[in-house]
Amino acid sequence: MNVNLNEIEVTINSAFSLAGTLAIPTDITQPAPAILIISGTGENDRNGNGKGLNVNIYKDLADILGKMGFVTLRYDKRGTHASGGDFNETGLWDLVDDSIACVQFLKSRQEVDPHRIFIFGHSEGASIAPLVHTKEPVHGLMLISGGVENLVHDTIPRQTGQALEELEQAKGIKGFLIRLLKVKEKAKKQTAAFIEKVLSSTTPTIRFKGKKIGAKWFREHAALNISDYISQVACPIIAISGSNDIQAPPDHARKFAEAATGEAEWHVIPHMNHILRKYEKPHTMLGLLKEYKSLFTTPIDAEFVKLLEQWLRKHTTTQPS
Protein backbone atom coordinates (compact mmCIF):
# COMPACT_ATOMS: atom_id res chain seq x y z
CA MET A 1 0.00 0.00 0.00
CA ASN A 2 1.34 3.42 -0.96
CA VAL A 3 0.97 5.37 2.27
CA ASN A 4 3.02 8.42 3.21
CA LEU A 5 3.86 7.44 6.76
CA ASN A 6 6.80 8.24 8.94
CA GLU A 7 7.37 5.13 11.07
CA ILE A 8 9.34 5.78 14.25
CA GLU A 9 10.70 3.08 16.55
CA VAL A 10 9.69 4.08 20.09
CA THR A 11 10.00 2.80 23.65
CA ILE A 12 7.00 2.85 25.98
CA ASN A 13 7.78 2.85 29.69
CA SER A 14 5.66 0.35 31.62
CA ALA A 15 6.76 -2.19 34.26
CA PHE A 16 9.15 -3.27 31.48
CA SER A 17 10.21 -1.33 28.41
CA LEU A 18 7.91 -1.99 25.46
CA ALA A 19 9.12 -1.64 21.89
CA GLY A 20 6.68 -0.12 19.46
CA THR A 21 6.19 1.57 16.12
CA LEU A 22 4.59 4.99 15.98
CA ALA A 23 3.27 5.61 12.46
CA ILE A 24 2.65 9.28 11.66
CA PRO A 25 1.09 10.54 8.40
CA THR A 26 3.66 12.84 6.80
CA ASP A 27 1.10 15.42 5.72
CA ILE A 28 -0.32 16.31 9.14
CA THR A 29 0.17 19.96 10.14
CA GLN A 30 -1.40 19.88 13.60
CA PRO A 31 -1.97 17.33 16.37
CA ALA A 32 -3.86 14.42 14.82
CA PRO A 33 -6.24 11.78 16.19
CA ALA A 34 -4.47 8.57 17.17
CA ILE A 35 -5.26 4.88 17.50
CA LEU A 36 -3.65 2.32 19.80
CA ILE A 37 -3.74 -1.17 18.27
CA ILE A 38 -4.07 -3.94 20.89
CA SER A 39 -3.40 -7.36 19.42
CA GLY A 40 -4.90 -10.77 20.05
CA THR A 41 -3.51 -13.67 22.09
CA GLY A 42 -0.13 -15.24 21.52
CA GLU A 43 3.44 -14.16 20.90
CA ASN A 44 3.09 -12.62 17.45
CA ASP A 45 5.00 -9.38 16.93
CA ARG A 46 3.61 -5.86 16.66
CA ASN A 47 2.81 -6.47 12.97
CA GLY A 48 0.80 -9.61 13.72
CA ASN A 49 3.43 -12.08 12.54
CA GLY A 50 5.14 -15.06 14.14
CA LYS A 51 5.65 -18.82 14.17
CA GLY A 52 5.22 -19.15 10.42
CA LEU A 53 1.98 -17.19 10.30
CA ASN A 54 2.87 -13.89 8.64
CA VAL A 55 -0.55 -12.30 8.22
CA ASN A 56 0.81 -8.75 8.78
CA ILE A 57 -2.62 -7.74 10.05
CA TYR A 58 -1.56 -4.89 12.37
CA LYS A 59 0.99 -3.43 9.93
CA ASP A 60 -1.71 -3.45 7.24
CA LEU A 61 -4.16 -1.79 9.63
CA ALA A 62 -1.60 0.89 10.54
CA ASP A 63 -1.15 1.64 6.82
CA ILE A 64 -4.92 1.80 6.24
CA LEU A 65 -5.54 4.03 9.25
CA GLY A 66 -2.55 6.20 8.37
CA LYS A 67 -4.01 6.78 4.94
CA MET A 68 -7.14 8.05 6.71
CA GLY A 69 -4.98 10.57 8.61
CA PHE A 70 -4.61 8.76 11.95
CA VAL A 71 -1.44 8.32 13.96
CA THR A 72 -1.16 4.69 15.12
CA LEU A 73 0.85 2.88 17.76
CA ARG A 74 1.47 -0.87 17.65
CA TYR A 75 3.86 -2.67 19.98
CA ASP A 76 5.43 -5.96 20.93
CA LYS A 77 3.76 -7.49 23.99
CA ARG A 78 5.63 -7.80 27.24
CA GLY A 79 8.19 -10.59 27.03
CA THR A 80 8.07 -10.93 23.25
CA HIS A 81 10.37 -9.81 20.44
CA ALA A 82 11.98 -6.44 21.32
CA SER A 83 9.99 -5.79 24.53
CA GLY A 84 11.24 -6.57 28.03
CA GLY A 85 9.76 -8.96 30.56
CA ASP A 86 8.77 -12.63 30.61
CA PHE A 87 5.79 -13.55 28.44
CA ASN A 88 4.91 -16.67 30.44
CA GLU A 89 4.78 -14.67 33.67
CA THR A 90 2.60 -11.95 32.14
CA GLY A 91 -1.00 -11.87 33.34
CA LEU A 92 -4.09 -10.30 31.81
CA TRP A 93 -3.84 -7.27 34.10
CA ASP A 94 -0.18 -6.83 33.17
CA LEU A 95 -1.31 -6.57 29.55
CA VAL A 96 -3.91 -4.00 30.62
CA ASP A 97 -1.24 -1.98 32.45
CA ASP A 98 0.97 -2.06 29.36
CA SER A 99 -1.89 -0.82 27.17
CA ILE A 100 -2.58 1.98 29.66
CA ALA A 101 1.08 2.99 29.40
CA CYS A 102 0.68 3.07 25.61
CA VAL A 103 -2.38 5.36 25.83
CA GLN A 104 -0.45 7.66 28.16
CA PHE A 105 2.47 7.60 25.73
CA LEU A 106 0.18 8.71 22.89
CA LYS A 107 -1.28 11.49 25.04
CA SER A 108 2.24 12.79 25.65
CA ARG A 109 3.21 13.05 21.98
CA GLN A 110 3.11 16.44 20.30
CA GLU A 111 1.90 14.85 17.04
CA VAL A 112 -1.24 13.54 18.79
CA ASP A 113 -4.45 15.26 19.84
CA PRO A 114 -4.88 13.82 23.38
CA HIS A 115 -8.65 14.28 23.17
CA ARG A 116 -8.94 12.15 20.02
CA ILE A 117 -7.36 8.85 21.02
CA PHE A 118 -9.09 5.59 20.13
CA ILE A 119 -8.34 1.96 20.91
CA PHE A 120 -8.54 -0.74 18.26
CA GLY A 121 -8.79 -4.05 20.14
CA HIS A 122 -8.61 -7.24 18.09
CA SER A 123 -9.57 -10.67 19.49
CA GLU A 124 -8.22 -10.68 23.08
CA GLY A 125 -7.54 -6.98 22.51
CA ALA A 126 -11.32 -6.47 22.31
CA SER A 127 -11.52 -7.70 25.92
CA ILE A 128 -8.55 -5.63 27.05
CA ALA A 129 -9.77 -2.35 25.51
CA PRO A 130 -12.75 -1.81 27.88
CA LEU A 131 -10.54 -2.61 30.89
CA VAL A 132 -8.05 0.02 29.74
CA HIS A 133 -10.78 2.62 29.21
CA THR A 134 -12.10 2.25 32.77
CA LYS A 135 -8.63 3.23 34.04
CA GLU A 136 -7.37 5.56 31.30
CA PRO A 137 -10.34 6.94 29.32
CA VAL A 138 -10.15 7.37 25.56
CA HIS A 139 -12.45 8.90 22.96
CA GLY A 140 -13.75 5.65 21.48
CA LEU A 141 -13.35 1.87 21.28
CA MET A 142 -13.24 -0.41 18.26
CA LEU A 143 -13.91 -3.96 19.48
CA ILE A 144 -13.06 -6.30 16.63
CA SER A 145 -13.48 -10.09 16.38
CA GLY A 146 -13.92 -10.39 20.13
CA GLY A 147 -16.19 -12.30 22.47
CA VAL A 148 -18.34 -11.38 25.44
CA GLU A 149 -17.48 -14.67 27.08
CA ASN A 150 -14.94 -16.06 29.51
CA LEU A 151 -11.81 -17.29 27.79
CA VAL A 152 -11.20 -20.16 30.22
CA HIS A 153 -14.74 -21.29 31.01
CA ASP A 154 -16.32 -20.61 27.60
CA THR A 155 -13.85 -20.02 24.75
CA ILE A 156 -11.41 -22.88 25.39
CA PRO A 157 -14.12 -25.57 25.86
CA ARG A 158 -16.04 -24.29 22.82
CA GLN A 159 -13.04 -24.23 20.50
CA THR A 160 -11.69 -27.54 21.81
CA GLY A 161 -15.11 -29.16 21.48
CA GLN A 162 -15.47 -27.96 17.91
CA ALA A 163 -12.04 -29.30 16.95
CA LEU A 164 -12.82 -32.66 18.57
CA GLU A 165 -16.14 -32.91 16.74
CA GLU A 166 -14.28 -32.32 13.48
CA LEU A 167 -11.77 -35.01 14.39
CA GLU A 168 -14.50 -37.53 15.10
CA GLN A 169 -16.09 -36.82 11.72
CA ALA A 170 -12.89 -37.75 9.89
CA LYS A 171 -13.37 -40.40 7.22
CA GLY A 172 -11.46 -43.53 6.29
CA ILE A 173 -8.79 -45.16 8.39
CA LYS A 174 -7.97 -41.87 10.16
CA GLY A 175 -11.52 -41.52 11.44
CA PHE A 176 -11.66 -45.20 12.36
CA LEU A 177 -8.48 -44.94 14.48
CA ILE A 178 -9.63 -41.70 16.16
CA ARG A 179 -12.86 -43.38 17.24
CA LEU A 180 -11.16 -46.66 18.16
CA LEU A 181 -8.59 -44.91 20.36
CA LYS A 182 -11.27 -42.68 21.92
CA VAL A 183 -9.25 -39.56 21.11
CA LYS A 184 -12.20 -37.26 21.77
CA GLU A 185 -12.83 -38.58 25.28
CA LYS A 186 -9.14 -38.49 26.19
CA ALA A 187 -8.73 -34.93 24.89
CA LYS A 188 -11.75 -33.72 26.86
CA LYS A 189 -10.33 -35.22 30.05
CA GLN A 190 -6.93 -33.66 29.39
CA THR A 191 -8.49 -30.23 28.80
CA ALA A 192 -10.46 -30.50 32.05
CA ALA A 193 -7.32 -31.60 33.93
CA PHE A 194 -5.40 -28.66 32.47
CA ILE A 195 -8.01 -26.11 33.50
CA GLU A 196 -8.26 -27.60 37.00
CA LYS A 197 -4.48 -27.50 37.46
CA VAL A 198 -4.21 -23.92 36.20
CA LEU A 199 -7.05 -22.61 38.37
CA SER A 200 -5.72 -24.29 41.51
CA SER A 201 -2.22 -22.90 40.99
CA THR A 202 -0.78 -19.86 42.75
CA THR A 203 2.45 -19.27 40.84
CA PRO A 204 2.87 -17.20 37.66
CA THR A 205 3.73 -20.32 35.66
CA ILE A 206 3.19 -24.05 35.89
CA ARG A 207 4.36 -27.12 33.98
CA PHE A 208 1.77 -29.18 32.15
CA LYS A 209 2.79 -32.18 30.05
CA GLY A 210 6.35 -30.86 30.23
CA LYS A 211 5.46 -27.44 28.83
CA LYS A 212 5.73 -24.12 30.68
CA ILE A 213 2.33 -22.42 30.88
CA GLY A 214 1.41 -18.85 31.83
CA ALA A 215 -0.92 -19.83 34.68
CA LYS A 216 -1.37 -16.25 35.93
CA TRP A 217 -2.82 -15.20 32.58
CA PHE A 218 -5.29 -18.10 32.61
CA ARG A 219 -6.35 -17.46 36.22
CA GLU A 220 -6.97 -13.78 35.63
CA HIS A 221 -8.99 -14.48 32.50
CA ALA A 222 -11.00 -17.09 34.42
CA ALA A 223 -11.93 -14.46 37.02
CA LEU A 224 -12.95 -11.86 34.42
CA ASN A 225 -16.54 -10.92 33.64
CA ILE A 226 -16.02 -8.65 30.65
CA SER A 227 -19.64 -7.45 30.71
CA ASP A 228 -18.98 -5.74 34.06
CA TYR A 229 -16.40 -3.53 32.37
CA ILE A 230 -18.24 -2.93 29.10
CA SER A 231 -21.20 -1.65 31.14
CA GLN A 232 -18.91 1.07 32.51
CA VAL A 233 -18.00 2.32 29.03
CA ALA A 234 -19.82 5.49 28.06
CA CYS A 235 -17.58 6.50 25.14
CA PRO A 236 -18.63 5.53 21.59
CA ILE A 237 -18.15 1.88 20.66
CA ILE A 238 -18.17 0.06 17.35
CA ALA A 239 -18.11 -3.75 17.53
CA ILE A 240 -17.45 -5.71 14.34
CA SER A 241 -17.22 -9.43 13.66
CA GLY A 242 -17.18 -11.56 10.54
CA SER A 243 -19.80 -14.17 9.73
CA ASN A 244 -16.99 -16.65 8.94
CA ASP A 245 -15.19 -16.18 12.25
CA ILE A 246 -15.09 -19.51 14.09
CA GLN A 247 -12.67 -18.34 16.77
CA ALA A 248 -15.05 -15.76 18.23
CA PRO A 249 -18.85 -16.05 17.90
CA PRO A 250 -20.03 -13.49 15.29
CA ASP A 251 -23.15 -12.54 17.29
CA HIS A 252 -20.95 -11.29 20.12
CA ALA A 253 -20.51 -8.03 18.20
CA ARG A 254 -24.13 -7.35 19.13
CA LYS A 255 -23.52 -8.41 22.73
CA PHE A 256 -20.66 -5.93 23.06
CA ALA A 257 -22.86 -3.11 21.81
CA GLU A 258 -25.84 -4.08 23.97
CA ALA A 259 -23.71 -4.23 27.13
CA ALA A 260 -22.39 -0.68 26.69
CA THR A 261 -24.04 2.31 28.38
CA GLY A 262 -23.06 4.88 25.75
CA GLU A 263 -23.47 5.15 22.00
CA ALA A 264 -22.71 1.79 20.40
CA GLU A 265 -23.18 0.10 17.06
CA TRP A 266 -22.40 -3.39 15.82
CA HIS A 267 -21.91 -5.14 12.50
CA VAL A 268 -21.36 -8.68 11.24
CA ILE A 269 -19.59 -8.60 7.88
CA PRO A 270 -20.53 -11.39 5.46
CA HIS A 271 -17.76 -13.95 4.81
CA MET A 272 -15.12 -12.11 6.86
CA ASN A 273 -12.99 -14.35 9.08
CA HIS A 274 -11.04 -13.76 12.32
CA ILE A 275 -8.05 -12.15 10.56
CA LEU A 276 -10.34 -9.66 8.79
CA ARG A 277 -10.08 -11.26 5.36
CA LYS A 278 -12.85 -12.37 3.06
CA TYR A 279 -13.06 -16.17 2.97
CA GLU A 280 -16.05 -17.84 1.35
CA LYS A 281 -14.91 -21.47 1.32
CA PRO A 282 -15.94 -23.94 4.03
CA HIS A 283 -13.52 -23.77 6.94
CA THR A 284 -12.84 -25.72 10.10
CA MET A 285 -11.13 -25.24 13.44
CA LEU A 286 -8.52 -27.84 12.44
CA GLY A 287 -7.92 -26.14 9.10
CA LEU A 288 -7.47 -22.58 10.37
CA LEU A 289 -3.69 -22.43 10.02
CA LYS A 290 -3.88 -23.56 6.40
CA GLU A 291 -6.72 -21.10 5.76
CA TYR A 292 -4.83 -18.16 7.25
CA LYS A 293 -1.63 -19.03 5.37
CA SER A 294 -3.60 -18.97 2.11
CA LEU A 295 -4.56 -15.35 2.81
CA PHE A 296 -1.09 -13.83 3.32
CA THR A 297 -1.39 -11.63 0.23
CA THR A 298 -5.12 -10.96 0.50
CA PRO A 299 -6.07 -7.41 1.58
CA ILE A 300 -8.12 -6.65 4.68
CA ASP A 301 -11.85 -6.80 3.93
CA ALA A 302 -12.96 -3.66 2.05
CA GLU A 303 -16.37 -3.50 3.75
CA PHE A 304 -14.66 -3.64 7.14
CA VAL A 305 -12.35 -0.77 6.19
CA LYS A 306 -15.30 1.31 4.96
CA LEU A 307 -17.21 0.81 8.22
CA LEU A 308 -14.18 1.77 10.28
CA GLU A 309 -13.57 4.92 8.26
CA GLN A 310 -17.21 6.04 8.46
CA TRP A 311 -17.26 5.56 12.23
CA LEU A 312 -13.91 7.24 12.80
CA ARG A 313 -14.84 10.23 10.62
CA LYS A 314 -18.05 10.63 12.60
CA HIS A 315 -16.27 10.54 15.94
CA THR A 316 -13.35 12.79 15.05
CA THR A 317 -15.71 15.62 14.17
CA THR A 318 -17.65 15.48 17.47
CA GLN A 319 -16.56 17.24 20.63
CA PRO A 320 -14.78 15.15 23.28
CA SER A 321 -16.93 14.13 26.22
Rank of each mutant, 00 (worst) to 15 (best):
T21I: 15
L295D: 00
G40V: 00
P157I: 09
I100T: 06
K212N: 03
G84C: 05
P320H: 09
K188F: 14
A234W: 03
V305R: 08
A253C: 10
E220P: 03
F87Y: 15
K77A: 05
L92R: 06
G84F: 05
G85T: 08
P299M: 12
P137W: 06
K212Y: 00
W311N: 01
G52P: 07
F70P: 11
A193G: 11
R78K: 12
G79P: 07
F16V: 09
Y229H: 14
K211N: 10
T155L: 12
I64P: 02
S14I: 03
L295K: 00
A170R: 07
I38G: 12
L36K: 00
A170L: 10
L312R: 09
G125L: 11
S127Q: 15
G50R: 06
T134M: 08
E89M: 13
T160P: 01
F105T: 05
I8K: 10
Q104A: 06
K184V: 15
R207N: 13
I213P: 01
C102R: 03
K77Q: 12
I178H: 05
L307A: 01
T21Q: 12
I173S: 11
G172T: 03
V71H: 05
G147D: 01
Q110V: 12
E89L: 06
I12Y: 03
F120N: 08
N56R: 10
S241G: 11
H115C: 08
D251I: 11
I12H: 03
R313V: 07
N54F: 08
T318R: 14
F70G: 11
Q159Y: 04
W266L: 02
N88P: 00
Q247T: 04
N273Y: 06
A19F: 12
P282I: 06
H133N: 15
I57W: 05
W311I: 00
G50S: 08
H133K: 04
A163V: 01
K281V: 03
E149I: 05
S200E: 11
L65P: 04
N244I: 01
P282N: 14
D27W: 06
S99K: 06
A264I: 04
T90D: 09
Q159R: 10
H267E: 13
I240R: 08
E185T: 14
I100M: 14
Q159L: 14
S127V: 13
P137D: 09
D86L: 04
V132L: 11
D94S: 15
K171P: 00
I144Q: 02
L177S: 09
K209H: 10
K281M: 13
H283S: 15
L143G: 03
P270K: 04
L141Q: 05
A253T: 09
E185I: 09
P130W: 08
V152T: 03
H133D: 14
N273I: 07
S127Y: 02
E149R: 13
K188R: 15
E258F: 09
Q159M: 10
Q232V: 00
T298D: 08
A248Q: 10
S17Q: 11
G40H: 02
Y58V: 03
V71Y: 04
D94E: 13
G42R: 00
F208A: 07
V268I: 15
W217I: 00
E196S: 14
K189Q: 15
M272T: 10
L289N: 12
K67F: 07
E89N: 14
L73T: 02
G42C: 01
